[in-house]
């Protein structure tokens, strides 16, 4: 039984180890190890395309995760007090948001936004003349699409925490005459804070790592996963390994933190 578990863990982590191993390879070829070197990290970090893609991914992930956490947390709190048909409808929408495959979200967002832009852009031209701002796919559409999905995720996570919360505390607060807003700020918020932070971290990593939605809605922007995908098409290089190692190590650290926050008991 233990051996079996060990084998599965090896299966899960050896490929990650191999990516890291070959990222330190001195030689150009991914086939044999010819010595230790950090040159591929240097090359990756000197590549303006990599840095540009990294900046785009980081900006999109930061903004979309922040907005998703804000809106998602508020929604989770509001949903706590809701019953009946409206609640069921909301649950269904959240369920659809989490379960519909990323590729369908990507496609749907692409054609919906293009249709809307095609309708609005001529109006903008009419209204403002030749210098009118034109709508198009880009960072904005990435943020909107990623945020929609991660917001649903935040709602699910925060709600799980709210359900585990001691209701007596809320009642005590109300009995002592605290107005609802104050109860929210001083009782509810500190209690759900770890879940909110975990939700933010998950939302950030999801957006940062997402390829499939970005592939459809990025327009002319290049995110880091899009850059990696198009590099893989051209072949395996130690530079991709170096980028991959950095991304994996960073996201593993963030995710383990998030999991720890989720599992920590409320004080």
């Amino acid at each position: 039984m233990r051996l079996y578990a060990l084998a599965v863990y090896l299966f899960l982590y050896i490929p990650i180890g191999i990516i890291a191993l070959f990222s330190f390879n001195a030689g150009r070829h991914a086939a044999q190890l010819t010595g230790f070197s950090l040159q591929w990290y240097g090359k990756a970090l000197d590549n303006p395309f990599v840095i540009g893609a990294l900046k785009t991914s980081f900006t999109v992930a930061l903004i979309s995760a922040t907005l998703a956490t804000l809106c998602g947390t508020l929604a989770a709190v509001a949903l706590q007090g809701m019953r009946g048909r409206a609640r069921m409808l909301y649950d269904a929408a959240l369920y659809v948001a989490v379960m519909v495959p990323g590729i369908v979200i990507g496609i749907a967002t692409l054609i919906a936004l293009v249709t809307v832009f095609d309708a609005v852009n001529p109006l903008l031209l009419q209204a403002f003349g030749a210098e009118a701002p034109q709508l198009g796919l880009g960072k904005g559409s990435l943020i909107a699409a990623h945020g929609m999905f991660t917001m649903a995720l935040v709602v699910v996570i925060v709600r799980a925490r709210l359900q585990g919360m001691d209701r007596a505390l809320l009642e005590a607060s109300a009995d002592l005459g605290a107005p609802p807003m104050r109860t929210f700020l001083q009782v509810t918020l500190p209690q759900i804070a770890p879940a909110v932070l975990a939700g933010f971290l998950l939302a950030f990593t999801f957006s940062f790592d997402d390829f499939i939605i970005a592939f459809f809605v990025a327009g002319s922007e290049t995110t880091l996963p899009i850059y990696v995908f198009s590099s893989i098409r051209r072949g395996v290089t130690p530079e991709i390994n170096a980028i991959g190692t950095m991304v994996l190590v960073a996201s593993l650290l963030v995710l383990i933190t998030a999991q720890m926050m989720l599992r920590r008991r409320a004080r």
Binding site: L12, I16, T205, D209, F211, I232, V236, V247
Partner: peptide, 30 residues
């Protein structure tokens, strides 16, 4: 238990793109 469980779950949330790329190197000709 908690650590072992976290170690199973966490890879799912990392980039599937990069994790699949690892298998190109493992299963590829070299």
């Amino acid at each position: 238990r908690t650590l072992l469980l976290i170690l199973v779950i966490v890879p799912f949330w990392t980039s599937i793109l990069i994790r699949s790329y690892a298998w190109i190197q493992i299963l590829g000709g070299n």
